[in-house]
């Protein structure tokens, strides 16, 4: 079980009264095992939304709940994958993945089993004893995803996880994430500014406005994906060529563009 709900959430940075309003009345309900992406221009507060679910930031007004419980602090039920990976440089791949399991006080044999399957899932077997700095960016992000997945979290929070990767690696990771999500469905809140990525990965896409961030529109992608049979195409470029995909992408682009133009009036 892993539902997320934002109800009437405001976020003000800086002193109360004179601070900057980053989020304005955010309302969003994410169902169990639903994959929701938030897209929006830089600085619109989409990452702040994720950080509030993670428990890194508190809402200034309204409530952020996970499984009906108000979020108060970070915890392993809400695993986070950061844009800059945030791996511990002094720990090996295995040790990075192990930390969360040790925190759960699991016995060694069980941890070993879980780590092995997480390494296998992310094709990291041959790098188990490497240190993060010895790996490429793509590999480092695999470790970060393995570290999050191994905890079997109720919700997975991904903050522009592929934003720091080169274009080729990015595509590979997107395809892998789709495979992962189909095989092992999970509630995912995914933050990105890449429109294609959001449409390709998510069940629903929420489009945010510029600061103060509001949710302008929520698009149902899943019904279109299923109706048009996107999953029959294993390669992302084939999906991106489909008329239904192009249509959605263009719609989101236009919506975001209106924002930009509005900003400049």
């Amino acid at each position: 079980m892993g539902s997320i709900s934002f109800s009437h959430v405001d976020k003000i940075f800086g002193p109360q009264g004179s601070g900057v309003k980053a989020l304005d009345n955010i309302n969003l309900d994410i169902a169990d095992r639903e994959f929701v992406a938030i897209v929006g221009p830089s600085g619109c507060g989409k990452t702040t939304c994720l950080r509030m679910v993670a428990g890194f930031e508190a809402a200034s007004a309204g409530e952020v709940k996970v499984n009906g419980k108000t979020v108060t602090a970070p915890g392993p039920d809400r695993a986070v994958v950061f844009q800059q990976f945030a791996l511990f440089p002094w720990k090996t791949v295995r040790e990075n993945i192990d930390l969360g399991l040790r925190n759960k006080n699991l016995p060694l044999a069980e941890r070993d089993g879980l780590i092995s399957s997480a390494l296998k899932l992310m094709s990291l077997e041959s790098h188990a004893d490497a240190f993060p700095h010895q790996l490429s960016g793509g590999m480092q992000q695999r470790v970060a995803i393995a570290r999050a997945y191994v905890l079997d979290p109720e919700v997975l929070l991904m903050d522009e996880p592929f934003g720091a990767l080169d274009a080729q690696t990015r595509v590979v990771m997107q395809e892998e994430l789709v495979r992962l999500a189909r095989r092992n469905p999970r509630t995912v809140l995914f933050i990105t500014h890449a429109v294609e990525e959001a449409v390709y990965l998510a069940d629903r896409v929420a489009i945010m406005t510029r600061r103060p961030g509001r949710i302008k529109e929520v698009l149902d992608i899943r019904s279109i994906r299923e109706a048009e049979g996107w999953d029959r195409h294993p390669k992302i470029e084939d999906v991106m060529d489909l008329e239904s995909f192009v249509h959605l992408r263009t719609h989101i682009w236009k919506t975001l563009r209106e924002e930009k133009d509005f900003q400049h009036v």
């Binding site: 993670a54 428990g55 890194f56 602090a73 970070p74 915890g75 392993p76 809400r78 695993a79 986070v80 950061f82 800059q84 945030a86 791996l87 511990f88 930390l99 969360g100 925190n103 759960k104 570290r147 905890l151």
Partner: peptide, 14 residues
């Protein structure tokens, strides 16, 4: 690096 502390916190580190 604050990210590392956040990562450790979300992993349930005491």
């Amino acid at each position: 690096e604050p990210r590392l502390i956040e990562a450790a916190k979300m992993l349930g580190t005491n």
